[in-house]
């Protein structure tokens, strides 16, 4: 028992000395990763000048906010001199001023309607419901193994007049959905 207690102390001491570790592998909550990626999508996407009329770059959330607060700090950050703002939208009629539209996965059934309303608009669409990129959506998050992946339908992006920089394209899986 004595020996064990001494061992315990020795262990504690050694630990105390060695906790100067530095991190390489980042571990985050799923929603934090997605929030961070949304910010990067804004950063590495070019919108046609005509669609950037307002002062702010608007991320619109369709349906409930699935980010449990982790997206909120994005407000106030700027991308290419545009301040980022979050808007919550409920219907296809409210999306006109959006630069990015995130569709809550519970709203999958509303997507076909929404998709029709998006025709001719330069809005980057993102969701995490399975099959989003195959159903005309642009970026589909998926949670595979312990990573977040993204499928990107480049045709849909092109049709919307958007341009995504190569740095991002190298990191995602390019798919071809049916438009």
């Amino acid at each position: 028992m004595q020996i064990l207690i001494r061992l315990l102390f020795a262990l504690a001491l050694l630990c105390g000395l060695s906790v100067t570790a530095h991190a390489e592998v980042v571990q985050l909550q799923e929603q934090q990763i997605k929030a961070g990626l949304l910010y990067n999508f804004l950063k590495y996407t070019d919108w046609p000048a005509a669609s950037l009329t307002g002062a702010t770059l608007n991320i619109c959330i369709f349906g409930d906010d699935p980010f449990s607060g982790s997206l909120n700090p994005i407000q106030g950050r700027t991308v290419n001199q545009h301040q980022i703002a979050i808007r919550y939208v409920q219907g296809a009629g409210e999306i006109t001023n959006c630069q990015m539209l995130f569709v809550n996965q519970n709203e999958q059934s509303a997507w076909p309607n929404l998709h029709r309303a998006l025709v001719g608009k330069s809005i980057l669409t993102v969701s995490d419901f399975p099959g989003f990129a195959a159903a005309g959506g642009m970026i589909e998050f998926s949670h595979q193994n312990d990573h977040i992946n993204a499928n990107l339908d480049l045709d849909a992006v092109d049709h919307a007049g958007l341009h995504i920089e190569d740095r991002l394209l190298r990191l995602v899986t390019i798919v071809h959905g049916d438009n």
Binding site: A21, A23, V25, V26, Q27, L28, Q29, E30, Q32, I33, A35, G36, L37, Y39, N40, Y44, S70, P73, I74, R77, H143, D146, H147, I148, N149, A150, R167, L168, L171
Partner: peptide, 21 residues
């Protein structure tokens, strides 16, 4: 490491896609 205070907006897309959930 997992740190709730980590600012995910300060990370690069490479770091985010490599991050473990």
């Amino acid at each position: 490491y997992a740190d709730d205070t980590l600012d995910s907006f300060a990370l690069s897309p490479e770091q985010l896609f490599n991050a473990t959930v």
